[in-house]
Design a binder for these strands. Sequence first.
RNA 1: CAAGCAGGUCGGUCUGCCGCACCGGAAACGGUGAGGAAAGUCCGGGCAGCACAGAGCACCACAGCGGUUAACGGCCGUCAGGCAGAAAUGUUUGGUCACUGCUACAGAGACGAGUGAUGUGAAACGAGCACACUGUGGGCUGCAAUUCCAAGUAAACCGGCGUUUGAGCGUUGCUCGCGCGAGUCGGAGGGUAGGAAGCGAGAGAGAGGCGCAGUAAUGCGUUUUCCGAGAUUAAUGGCAGACACCCGUAAGGGUACAGAACCCGGCUUAUAGACCUGCUAUCGCG
RNA 2: GGCCCUGUAGCUCAAUUGAAUAGAGUGUCAGAUUCCGGUUCUGAAGGUUCUGGGUUUGAGCCCCAGCAGGGUCA
Length: 109
Amino acid sequence: MRIAQLYKEGQRFTVWPLRVTYQPIANGQESDQTGNSQVLVWAPKSIFKHAVHRNHLRRLMREAYRQHQEILAKSHYIIAFNYIDKEELSYAVIEKAMVKALNKITNHQ
RNA sequence: CAAGCAGGUCGGUCUGCCGCACCGGAAACGGUGAGGAAAGUCCGGGCAGCACAGAGCACCACAGCGGUUAACGGCCGUCAGGCAGAAAUGUUUGGUCACUGCUACAGAGACGAGUGAUGUGAAACGAGCACACUGUGGGCUGCAAUUCCAAGUAAACCGGCGUUUGAGCGUUGCUCGCGCGAGUCGGAGGGUAGGAAGCGAGAGAGAGGCGCAGUAAUGCGUUUUCCGAGAUUAAUGGCAGACACCCGUAAGGGUACAGAACCCGGCUUAUAGACCUGCUAUCGCG
RNA sequence: GGCCCUGUAGCUCAAUUGAAUAGAGUGUCAGAUUCCGGUUCUGAAGGUUCUGGGUUUGAGCCCCAGCAGGGUCA
């Protein structure tokens, strides 16, 4: 339910090869959570047929977020990262896109 | 030697920094963390629920013979025929009976006769398929099974049949028979999508050895070591360096197939490369 | 994760128990009708029956493997 709401109401933009959808979390909201940001990461099954490739891309995106999550500072968000390219790209490319995307979120706020 | 055939094993290793999941711990921290196919879901089991007085008919699978196993359509041995090969070897077929049905075109004639040759044809007292028969096995559904806790809704609405003259349900698909029996079947609609158990110490594994039986698959006994994933949309990752192997004069590049979801035994399919064992003797080289 | 189903002309579907030339509608193209177009009529093209093996004299159909797509179950 929360995921459907995010994709319906959230703001979105694309930083190749990622499509980002996000919503800020106001203080006091999302009472069932501890106050951290929530992140959803996936690669489409229709393009990547084998589970090993999807797992790898998911891990790369997750690692890139982990390395650079301090960019978001103290504001909290719900963010979804979709991998949209048809090829498996290297970690360096994904990391670069991740930094760009996170900066864009904070600047828009 | 090269070549070929069969079987088997491995399928990158190590270090540093930053991280993830589970377990233990008050904490610091410690321990553990994908595969030979985890895949396809093609077979067979374990396990779970439902059912089970019984009989008959169907249905499905298998099919020389013998063995192995928890079980199998797997595996091992072996017999006969066909095909490939020089050989090692590989591959394929294989229960029974009768004429109930089919066998296009061609052919005088196609399972029928009066018969043989030639010709026709896949097949002309000889065959293929279906049906039938024999033997063996199979109850059905599947971990989203199933059990418990919490929360919530609609005991409402419409239609069929029925209450001892028996609806409906169970008894595998059908029939009989048996049992339960006052409600039940269908439609449309409403609600839930949380937690726990199942969940891994077992038909355990050898990544150890010895002995015995057997040609072998495999089994038995004994000793020793180990417990090495258990999530619930899913952890096992990133960066840097060294070594190994391959390609390239070099700079440099590459290292396959692929990711557990209840668990095992097989089969099948995908797979860079490396290694070991046994066998064959045509050609080529010495 | 389990179970089940389906792949045939561009599209939607047939083809009884295996039998020889794989059919129908629609769409496409050409011709006729019309001043022109539509409608209607006539004709034509269009198929490695998803792919690869096997059984059989013969396979869209039976068997095995693969590929693609779909349904359903708490």
